[in-house]
Design a protein around this nucleic acid. Structure first.
Lengths: 333, 333
DNA sequence: TTATAAATTGCAAAGGTTTGCGACAATTTT
DNA sequence: AAAATTGTCGCAAACCTTTGCAATTTATAA
């Protein structure tokens, strides 16, 4: 079965004996076109299963309906759920996603940025790599007219569009939960210190702890990944400095800590308390469930997409959007 | 600073006083072009930071360097790791990914398919929805020249390109592990029965169990999601028909079962044994670690991308690629 | 009835690249 | 010295859509 006619504007025009431009306008309900013409065109277009050639449109308008999303890694609950919900929202607005992972490497991150530019994306969502120092590639992209929206791992500078968790507040919530638990000796694990998200969470936790309960004993530590977290926790647990409560600033750290506690033969919460910042998946899987401060990628994603809508409409170039979170009580404290 | 010239073939040609076609050919090392010319062109192109306009190329060649990936949902470890590794491999081959979720809805699945077609993807990777009965949309896409590669959740029909887990064998491995554990009363939970993956795993498990240990007592049940799995497990546990071992055919089911066991106050493995098909993330998080048969999305992803390479090169239209798996012993049996 | 406005439609260029084919000059072969 | 070959390069069409502007027809006002 040889398809005689591809579904293009030209073919529709030929078959109807009218011009391409009329077809084009009819299809997008342009007021210039007579209702009767519109009807004819639409009917034939439907019949032929016409879909405008996306590339031709992009080429002409120089704007695609694709959003680039760059995350450190997809194998992370938080980004995961972020991407999922962005995808859902984007679809509703007629956008598709190009999802890219920077694998925590600024070089890959820049390559991804380039890829986005190559694909003339309508915009880019970025969660920064911990190692990213130089923001000039982002500035260049911005200058070339592609809006960039930073989420979660955002730059300090306020000259950008940012959507993030109320990180300092999250730290404070954690502090209050710890104080309420009456535990005094805290072992707090944080991710890469370059990230403002890390600094803010730590600051929130430490400040609030010190303010509300001055003589609390807190040890903070920086770890690079789940494996690191496991190691330092095992060491801590077998030392004579065993903490009464362990705080984990992320799911990745949390999984390491859980394995460490299990492996060391300790029991939650009687031997050691546990508190995390998480989206809840892992906490709810444990027995007892782990108390956590919820940071929902879903919510962040939806908000990001909404903000992106505003950016496109109103051409905003700077904005700070903050999402609140709350304590979900399990039995680990 | 106003950018006077965009980096296009035309501009390069103008500045060098040669034609567009010569520039185009020079840049792709066409033998017709003199070495000296190539050198000049390349130098200026580098200087101008020239990148061919992807859309123009696509429009002309009608082929993009983008692969569509359609999964039931991204919030599933397995697909997750699949996507991650496909992305890595794809990048190496110069491809990008459009990732789409069908949310287990055939309607969305078809819409996604359409989106892929719209974007003239070079190929599509699909894990079928459990509800997908009608494969004709896929056939149509295939007929239009876009190769489709099914993975994990694949159609029965052998007229397609398929990359999947050795599902029957996985079931058999599970059976042998159960027999070795000496537990007799089995409660086995499976996902949607429409899926060949489900049927095969179940068949493998049941057949091998019956063959090797004829008088074993096995109850199989179909559940739709994690929540369902939790519910039926709780019911089972509180009945007087409590099983000695629970088998979960997926991570999703496993998480529900774990929560059920916790909530019912039973202990693994003394009260009840547990065995799952999983990628290992959840199993290794538990205490004791859960014994599982490993099905790695990573591996599947890499294999899929490799197969896709062959498909493009050699124009294969049918192939069955099977990945073996193995038992990882934890302490849950 | 004629001039003016409004409603429709078409022309043609533009967007950047690829590619078959022809043009021209330099070189080699008869 | 004429003919054939080889090496370089340019012309122009094609891919499909969008859009400013001109052209045409029809309705309205003077």
């Amino acid at each position: 079965m040889h398809m005689r006619n591809k579904a293009t504007l030209k073919n529709i025009a030929n078959q109807l004996g009218i011009s391409i431009s009329t077809v084009s306008r009819a299809l997008k309900d342009h007021p210039d076109i007579a209702t009767s013409t519109k009807k004819k065109v639409r009917e034939l277009a439907d019949l032929m299963d016409f879909e405008p050639n996306a590339f031709a449109v992009y080429l002409r308008t120089n704007q695609s309906k694709v959003i680039g999303v760059i995350v450190p890694e997809l194998s992370n609950f938080f980004y995961h759920s972020f991407v999922t919900s962005v995808e859902e929202e984007a679809r509703k607005m007629g956008y598709s996603l190009i999802i890219l992972q920077s694998a925590n490497d600024p070089v890959v991150e820049e390559a991804n940025l380039k890829l986005c530019k190559l694909n003339r994306v309508a915009g880019i969502f970025v969660a920064l790599t911990p190692e990213t120092k130089d923001l000039s590639p982002f500035d260049r992209i911005n200058a070339s007219g592609i809006p960039i929206l930073f989420f979660d791992k955002v730059p300090d500078d306020n000259e950008y569009i940012k959507v993030c968790i109320a990180d300092r507040e999250v730290g404070k919530i954690a502090a209050r939960a710890i104080i309420e638990s009456k535990r005094k000796k805290v072992f707090a694990l944080f991710g890469n210190a370059n990230l403002s998200i890390t600094r803010k969470r730590k600051q929130g936790l430490v400040d609030e702890l010190k303010t509300l309960s001055p003589f609390i004993d807190i040890t903070t530590l920086t770890v690079n990944n789940s494996h690191d977290a496991k190691k330092v926790t095992i060491d801590m647990l077998k030392s004579n400095q065993r903490a009464e409560v362990i705080f984990c600033m992320s799911d990745e750290i949390l999984t390491g800590v859980i394995m460490a506690i299990h492996q060391s033969g300790f029991v939650i919460p009687s031997d050691v308390g546990l508190l995390a910042i998480s989206n809840g998946f892992v906490p709810k899987l444990m027995n007892p469930e782990i108390t956590y401060i919820e940071t929902s990628g879903d919510q962040l994603g939806r908000r990001a997409m909404k903000t992106f809508g505003e950016v496109l409409e109103k051409g905003i170039t700077k904005k700070l959007d903050i999402i609140e979170s709350r304590l979900i009580k399990g039995g680990s404290l």
